[in-house]
Write a protein that binds this DNA or RNA. Sequence first.
DNA 1: ATTATATATAGATAATAATCTATGTAAGGG
DNA 2: CCCTTACATAGATTATTATCTATATATAAT
Lengths: 111, 111
Amino acid sequence: MNNRYQTFAKLFKTLADPNRLKIIDILSCGEKCACDILEEFQFTQPTLSHHMKVLIDSGLVNSRKQGLWHFYRLNPERSHQVKQFLTELISETDACICHEQAVCSSLEQVR
Amino acid sequence: MNNRYQTFAKLFKTLADPNRLKIIDILSCGEKCACDILEEFQFTQPTLSHHMKVLIDSGLVNSRKQGLWHFYRLNPERSHQVKQFLTELISETDACICHEQAVCSSLEQVR
DNA sequence: ATTATATATAGATAATAATCTATGTAAGGG
DNA sequence: CCCTTACATAGATTATTATCTATATATAAT
């Protein structure tokens, strides 16, 4: 299995939660600390901590510690990679340069 | 909760599986029937049927029946919507037009 | 009609993940 | 040194999902 599929499947899994999408949306306004983010949600602090860990592990978010506060910010480069992957994934060129070349070339195109 | 978060979280969930990413990649070469797709995987036919159902329900893939064969093809418009959402989600403008306006404007930006 | 082929559906199982409560840790204030 | 604050970690529970075997359905061929 092409490793890119697994890599980006993990990234999409990170994005596959409405709460994490809202967190990303909030962070698009700029750096925020956990306590500020938490105010916008109904769930508990450990749940937010879990989501932030998932986001950081994915590379979509970076963090910085300053005294008691942990500040989080977006890593736009990472989400750009996601968009780039999607673009490549669905691109249909004349030459059919999908990443599973063997698949496409081995199949008769007309039934 | 902003309904767009839930809508697109579901779409990302569809994309959060390496096998389905590979299926999409294969379909980027053009329309294929299930039996041709199945050849590229180790899992069983019901498993492929499950994945195709997920892809169709998400709107990322359309299908067509012709005799015994079911043909599947990409709906590029849907994946374009995903990219568009990602672009909007992370966009940081001077005016901070995130979808959670109240969040951004209510927070002091400097600590 | 019977058989073969292509795909879907049902139901079970195992793995993953979202959430909670309880507790730990680290930093600052008095 | 003790308390408070901000956040993380541990462990349990519940829900979801990927996969399987077994079976159904629909179409074509003989």
